[in-house]
Design a protein around this nucleic acid. Structure first.
Lengths: 352, 352
DNA sequence: TCATAATTTTGACGCGTGTAAAAATATGAC
DNA sequence: GTCATATTTTTACACGCGTCAAAATTATGA
C-alpha cells in the first residue's frame, strides 16, 4: 500500500441540495421548477431561459430516488442476463442501454449467473425497484416460475435471446429466428462442401434445442442425414468454450470428425472446437475439416481460422425489446403476446 | 411477428403492497416491522418467528426506492467501466457484484463507452442516486475533472484498473502493479528466449504509458535494449484487437518482427497480433516469433497458439475495491489516500 | 408475586419530490 | 388601456418508509 495526501477540491460552483433550495436561489416556485424538469417546454420561454442560466451557475443534482418514488412511472427498465462474461450478452446490454437512453429510460442490469436462485432474486429486486418493465435473457430450464409470475403482474416482461420454458408466464419475446439463421448456414455449408454434423451447446436454454431442431429440419429438407455430436457429458456448464474444446478434443483424439464439417450451436462452443482442432493440427494439415458457429461473437473474426458464422442482429433485438417494453409500460397491457423474430446474416469467413 | 394469448397467472400468494398493510395482516405494528427488516435480531425471537411465518405466506416486496431515500445510507455502490464488451471489465464487474452482495450492497453499473462525456453523465447519475460510493475504471485522458471533483465531495471514489489523470481529485486506487506484472513477463521472456519488443495499446488510460515504462525499466535492468513498435497511427480506438491486428499486419507485411518476441500491452492487442501472425503463417512456419500479452483475458487460452500472459488478480482487485469504498463510506473520510497494488501471476502457455 | 428490564405500540414528524386546485399575475391582441 | 388567456404561484396533500419519544405491554428472575 502506498499512502498519499488527499487534496481538497474546492467546488467551482455552490452546491445546492434540494429543489426547494434551488427554487429559492433561482427566484421561482418549486412546482414550476418541478414542471420544468419534467418538460422544459411547459413553462414560459423566459422562465425556462432564466432557469437554465441560473442552473449553469450552481451544482444541483436532482434526487433520483425521490423523483422515481413519486412519479407514476419510474422510467426504469431492468435487464437480466445469465452472465456478463459472454460477449454476446455484453453486446446486447450495450445496445439496450443505448436504445433505452434514447427513450429516456435508465437501465438496471443484473446477472443471474446462470443460476435460477440468483435469477429469482434479481427479478425480485427489480420488483422492489418498481421498474416499468424488464428485459430478460432467461436461464431457461429450472427457472423460478413463481418469481416471474409475480413479476409479470407488476410490470411487462419481455424475454430475449432464448424463449422461456413453456411453464413460464406467457410474455413477449424478441430474438433470432433460429430456423432462418441455422437454415441459412446449413444451406451455405452444404452448398460449399460436405453437409455438416451438429455440435450442440449444453441444454441450458431453449436455443440449445431449437437450434438442433432447426439443423435437423434443414438437413431433412436438403435430403441429407442429420447427425449430432453427443455433448451431454459436458453437463450444464455455461463455460461454452471449455465444453466445445473438451468434446472435440475427445473426438479428434479418437480420429473422429477430423475431416467433417461441424456446425456449432454458438460461437463460443465453436471457439473451443477450433482450439481443439488446432491442438490436433487439423487445420494446418489441409484436411477437409470445417467449423462454423452462430452469433458472430466479437472475437470470432480473430480466431484462426476466422470463424464462419451467422450474425444475430443484436441492435435490432435490443431496439425491438426496448420498444416493446416501453409500449407495454405506457399503453396498458394487451391480452395477446407478441413474438418478434429477427433474421441473422451470413458471415462467411475462413473456417468453413 | 407471431401473436399468442397471454395467460393470466393466478398469484399463489396474496399480494401486499405496503409495509403498513403488511403490519396489519401480520398483527404487529409497523415500526416493529421496520426494525425487523433493518435487523431481525433486535426484535423478540417469538416476534421474529411470527413475522417470518406470515411473510412466507404472502407476496411482499419492500419498496427499494423509498427505503433508500430515508436511510442515512443507500447501500448502493456505483460502478463505471469504459465498456461492457471487454471481458476484463466484464470479469471485474462480476467479481465486484459478488463481493458487494456479500456485504449487502447493491451495484449500479454504468458504461462510459470510452467517452468522457458519457462518463461524466454516469458520474452525475450516480450522484443523483445518492450512492454510498463508486468504483471507477477511468477513461484516463480527457476526463471531466469537475464531474469527478463534485462527486468526490458527495461520496468516496475508488479508481480501479488504471490510475486517473494527475489532474483528477486524488482518490483511492486499486489495481495491478504494472512494474511487477510487466517485470515478471519480461523476465520470463528473456529467460526463455530473445528479449521482447513492446507493442503498446492506444494511449487511452494510464496503463498504456505505465506498462511501456515498466517494460523499459525491466529491459534496462536486464541490460537489453528496449524497443517499442509504433502504434500511434491507430489513434484512440478502444477496439484493441483491431489495433493490434492492423499494426502487426503492417509490420509482418513488410517482413519486420517476423522472428521477434513481442510483448503486448494487453491480451486484446495480443489477440489481434496473433491473428496477424497467423495470417502471415508465422507460427506454422516454425520461426522464432513469440507473442505475449497481459491480463489473462478469458479467451486467451483458446487462441492458437494459446497466449502466454500474466493474470491480473481480478477477484482481489474487486474485493479490495469494495472493501475500500465500504470502509470509506462507513468510517468517515480519512485525509490520506490509499493505493493498493496487487501482483499478477505468470501464465506460460504456447505463444511464448 | 412483584420489581425491573426488555420489547412493542402509538402517534407523530421528516425525507424530497410529484401533483392538483385555486388564486394571482403576466402576456398579447385589440 | 382593457380584457381574455396563458402561465405561474400558493397552498395543500400524497408517496412509503425511517425514526423518535412516550406510553403500554410483556417477559425475566429473584
Amino acid at each position: 500500500m502506498v499512502y498519499g495526501v488527499r487534496r481538497s477540491w474546492p467546488m467551482a460552483k455552490p452546491k445546492i441540495k434540494t429543489m426547494k433550495e434551488l427554487s429559492e436561489t433561482i427566484g421561482i416556485s418549486r412546482p414550476t421548477l418541478s414542471r420544468y424538469f419534467r418538460d422544459p417546454s411547459v413553462v414560459r420561454p423566459s422562465t425556462s431561459k432564466k432557469i437554465q442560466e441560473r442552473l449553469s451557475e450552481v451544482d444541483y443534482v436532482y434526487n433520483f430516488l425521490t423523483t422515481r418514488q413519486n412519479r407514476k412511472s419510474t422510467e426504469l427498465i431492468g435487464v437480466i442476463v445469465p452472465s456478463y462474461k459472454d460477449l454476446f450478452f455484453a453486446s446486447l446490454i450495450e445496445s439496450i442501454e443505448q436504445s433505452a437512453k434514447d427513450l429516456g429510460y435508465t437501465i438496471i442490469t443484473q446477472s443471474s449467473n446462470g443460476d435460477s436462485g440468483v435469477e429469482a432474486h434479481a427479478v425480485r429486486k427489480l420488483r422492489s425497484m418498481s421498474v416499468d418493465g424488464a428485459i430478460v435473457a432467461p436461464i431457461g430450464v429450472a427457472a423460478d416460475h413463481d418469481a416471474f409470475a409475480a413479476a409479470s403482474e407488476d410490470f411487462p416482461l419481455v424475454f430475449v435471446d432464448s424463449r422461456p420454458a413453456k411453464s413460464m408466464p406467457l410474455a413477449d419475446f424478441v430474438g433470432t429466428d433460429n430456423m432462418q439463421s441455422i437454415g441459412a448456414i446449413v444451406e451455405y455449408l452444404c452448398r460449399i462442401g460436405d453437409p455438416p454434423v451438429f455440435l450442440g451447446m449444453p441444454h441450458l436454454n431453449a436455443n440449445a434445442e431449437e437450434r438442433e431442431h432447426a439443423y435437423r429440419a434443414k438437413m431433412l429438407e436438403l435430403n441429407h442425414e442429420a447427425k449430432a455430436i453427443e455433448c451431454a457429458g459436458a453437463g450444464g456448464s455455461w463455460e461454452f468454450e471449455a465444453v466445445g474444446y473438451a468434446v472435440m478434443d475427445d473426438c479428434f483424439g479418437r480420429g473422429e470428425f477430423t475431416n467433417s464439417t461441424i456446425l456449432c450451436a454458438n460461437d463460443r462452443v465453436a471457439i473451443g472446437a477450433i482450439r481443439a482442432a488446432n491442438k490436433h493440427g487439423l487445420f494446418s494439415r489441409g484436411g477437409g475439416l470445417r467449423i462454423a458457429g452462430h452469433d458472430d461473437h466479437p472475437l470470432s473474426q480473430y480466431m484462426f481460422p476466422a470463424l464462419t458464422t451467422v450474425a444475430q442482429d443484436v441492435e435490432g433485438i435490443a431496439d425491438a425489446a426496448i420498444q416493446l417494453v416501453a409500449q407495454r409500460a405506457r399503453g396498458g397491457r394487451s391480452t395477446e403476446t407478441v413474438e418478434v423474430f429477427l433474421n441473422a446474416a451470413m458471415k462467411p469467413r475462413e473456417s468453413a
